[in-house]
Amino acid sequence: MVHEKTSIVLAGVGGHGVITAANILGKTALKEDMTVYVSEVHGMAQRGGAVICTVRMGKKVSTALLARGTADAIVSTEPIEALRYISYANTHTKIITDVNPTIPFTVSVSGEKYPAVERIFDEIKKHAMLYKIDAMSIAKNAGSVITKNIVLLGALAAADVLPFKPDVLLETVLDNVPPKYRDINRKAFNGGIKAIKSLKTRSLK
């Protein structure tokens, strides 16, 4: 399904590899000869803070920023960050998130509350299409937790929103890492694909 324009929101926490994932999408779109813009966050926005990157690609794209309600997919490295950017979603938006929370320090220090994850998922389901996967475990099985972002990219590739095939994206993923880490990253990516496929089969039954 190739749209004129594909808009992806990548959310997470500083250190989760959100910017890397966004750039991999950007590079892939460029290879496929599309116009692509990627927004990044730097400086004060890092240091463990909430991170959002946006990627927009297609035939005719003018900006990396997207209007609220127009995301094709929101990919998040943890549950509340997926919900934090729900304003970018509409009922067709696919929200792909890791199920494992990263509790912000404000919960322990300032007594803020991290909602029950089921509550978060119910809320997301009210507004959009939820695809929750255990990206952390898949990454661990692949060989390293730091490949969680790659698991999520694999998941995104299998969710029928990207204007290119999973193989093309995987190629960029592998180009982006030193040869000795290629196997781990391939496993992580394919793990993400598999997780989404099994979700789809379950929902068909």
Binding site: G14, R47, G49, G69, I80, L83, K113, Y114, I120, H127
Partner: peptide
């Protein structure tokens, strides 16, 4: 033409940047 903006009623904990 934009759809109405979705808002969540769930109160989310803030996640500001912090000293490492």
């Amino acid at each position: 033409p934009l759809p109405p903006v979705v808002k969540t009623e769930v109160k989310l904990p803030s996640r500001p940047p912090a000293l490492c």
